[in-house]
Design a protein around this nucleic acid. Sequence first.
DNA 1: CCGTAATCGAGACGGTACGTCGTGTCTTAGT
DNA 2: ACTAAGACACGACGTACCGTCTCGATTACGG
Lengths: 208, 208, 208, 208
Amino acid sequence: MSPSDPATTRTGRPRSTAADAAILEATRALLVELGWSKLTVGDVATRAGVAKTTLYRRWAGKNELVVDAVAVLFDELEMTDRGSLAADVQGVVLQFAALLERPETRTALMAVVAESTRDDSLRRRIRSAIVERQKRLVVLGRERAQARGELRYEDDPSAAAHHADLIFDVIAGAVVHRTLVSAEPVDAAWASSFTALLMLGLAGAQDR
Amino acid sequence: MSPSDPATTRTGRPRSTAADAAILEATRALLVELGWSKLTVGDVATRAGVAKTTLYRRWAGKNELVVDAVAVLFDELEMTDRGSLAADVQGVVLQFAALLERPETRTALMAVVAESTRDDSLRRRIRSAIVERQKRLVVLGRERAQARGELRYEDDPSAAAHHADLIFDVIAGAVVHRTLVSAEPVDAAWASSFTALLMLGLAGAQDR
Amino acid sequence: MSPSDPATTRTGRPRSTAADAAILEATRALLVELGWSKLTVGDVATRAGVAKTTLYRRWAGKNELVVDAVAVLFDELEMTDRGSLAADVQGVVLQFAALLERPETRTALMAVVAESTRDDSLRRRIRSAIVERQKRLVVLGRERAQARGELRYEDDPSAAAHHADLIFDVIAGAVVHRTLVSAEPVDAAWASSFTALLMLGLAGAQDR
Amino acid sequence: MSPSDPATTRTGRPRSTAADAAILEATRALLVELGWSKLTVGDVATRAGVAKTTLYRRWAGKNELVVDAVAVLFDELEMTDRGSLAADVQGVVLQFAALLERPETRTALMAVVAESTRDDSLRRRIRSAIVERQKRLVVLGRERAQARGELRYEDDPSAAAHHADLIFDVIAGAVVHRTLVSAEPVDAAWASSFTALLMLGLAGAQDR
DNA sequence: CCGTAATCGAGACGGTACGTCGTGTCTTAGT
DNA sequence: ACTAAGACACGACGTACCGTCTCGATTACGG
């Protein structure tokens, strides 16, 4: 997971764990100040008080570095129980939108996704560090809704997984598109409209 | 629109219109071969058989150039009348996904969106050249559905516009996210599931 | 000769001749300030007000650059007619020693010679830019001495050339070794002793 | 002399004497393979099977290391008694030239001399390890010649020392210059010409 | 049908960042 | 106290693109 855990660290001076943290912190700070395209590896190293070689020993380049620096921010997303599926979804939508408004993520997320279209290892890194980790929110929301009786239990685990993927792409895609492509704010009104649409879609499926 | 239409045609040698086309064509070809991040302005000029000066006289840089080169591809999207709103939506979803699978758009779209988060003029260029142009599809689909009686007419034009924007973000966002972030194929099965969800959401809203 | 004279300069912006001069001047200045081993190509470019690429377009690296920068200094050597061969030789010895005491040459000459032992093109550059050019002094001295009747005319031109080479190696070698290896001053006393030794060697050969 | 003889042997693990030899041997080997400028301290340590720390505990850097590695080669010079001063000198000239043709010395000697122009401690090291040690040859040659009656005894010891220095600079300088700067071979013909010149110079001084 | 003027190709220019390499120091664990 | 291993801060390397500039050589149009 962390860049500094070789399978077996036997001899020699061990890698500085402080350097890891300082580099990621500096990366986030400079993303805020400069944005993705003006961010340079050299600047990050300088800001972190670290030599460029130290950075390159851990990350292959700017792409990998930024994915790791930003991934942790997505772990801040939480879905507190608001009593109903609609309220839970709306809460997460607003949280996610707020995260995308932050300059670090705003400038970096689409950039690394763009790079990943030509770099499979980067794509895998994004998937494991960001995408798959956050699917937990969909799963959690569904479990709560099922416990409340809002949603039926799905017997086929494969169908359940596909359905979760679909919901995830719809929610994340809509919020990202609204925020970064359409460049319109995700306010309570939009979140409400979107949630209503989604709830109806989900509820309709129950009745078939 | 075209980079070669000065407000007032003056004296002197006129700009070569052949150069415009050659540059955009070369840009698309090199996007396919190299991807966004390895594409260089110098390469484009060389491939187009043109001096760098000639290119820079027309476009401010790589971002603007790529937006113009790629925008035209989105105009290929069409919504042929398939008899029902669901069929129309599914058709457009599959067309849009096919477009995003093409290497030019795949590598370029997210990249320019990422750049646009720090460059307002670029954002406006993307909006006018790509985003707003394709909202026509949502509007057209709604009109057809209304004509068929599948959807009610909305009296409030502002509410209608907001609703169209929402639908657009949901459809475009979901397809983009599925394709580029989740990196899973948009096949007929997925398109069908997604369309079903969306149709239920829209239908439910009619009944309230 | 000059780095900026391609056989045929046809199209494109011509190379700046001012840059050539500024680079060589900066090289000499930095040799004085920093010495050979701390001299960096980047510093030279900065000092010359020139981009590194401009420098690298003209010279392959530090070695070639320094040879050209220093070679011109050797052209300042002159052999004014002091009335006798001994006086002429002593004069040139002192001049040459003074040149080797200058920080530019002191630090650079042995360094490029050392590099040239592994780089034939550099060796050729040194020979043509410095060594062969200064053999003129030996030839001139001999001609004057012959005109004065101090030396016989040598009929065989090949033998004459070999003899000149020998004298050159002896004079230049002794002065360089005294100055840079033994690191002792070449003062009038030493020059006088050396010249005396050499004169006797040359005179003896006349009598055989 | 040896880098591993601390004034007072203290407690703890003693330094490996094998390491000293291996490092110097590796240095010579890599000088042959790579030449001075591509020789790196890290390479030397690796080749010697030793950690960089171990090397740096013994030598301050590349310069000092190479001086020590090469100095020993100069001790191979011998002046066997060939029956006359001229023969002795010619023998030493050819031996010295052969030494300078060896790649280790060829590439290293001028390099360390060049470095020494800016580093007094290095200059002293070169003087004591190489220059002064080899003056023994001049002194020995003079003594033999005096014993044979070829040269007079010099009463003034200071004058004798200066004369020996002069001869040393002339011989060493001429051979070095011929070999490394002029880059011409020191063959028997050249050695013979040079020796003849020198003998006449020395003989003439006797007759005054 | 001639001159003015903006274009064209070519390629040099001053910059900035890249990713790598070498240096000499430091920090481990293991003699 | 030493050893091997290797991470560390630093600084230079030589290359690649950027966007601008200066050339000489082409076009068109307007007088």
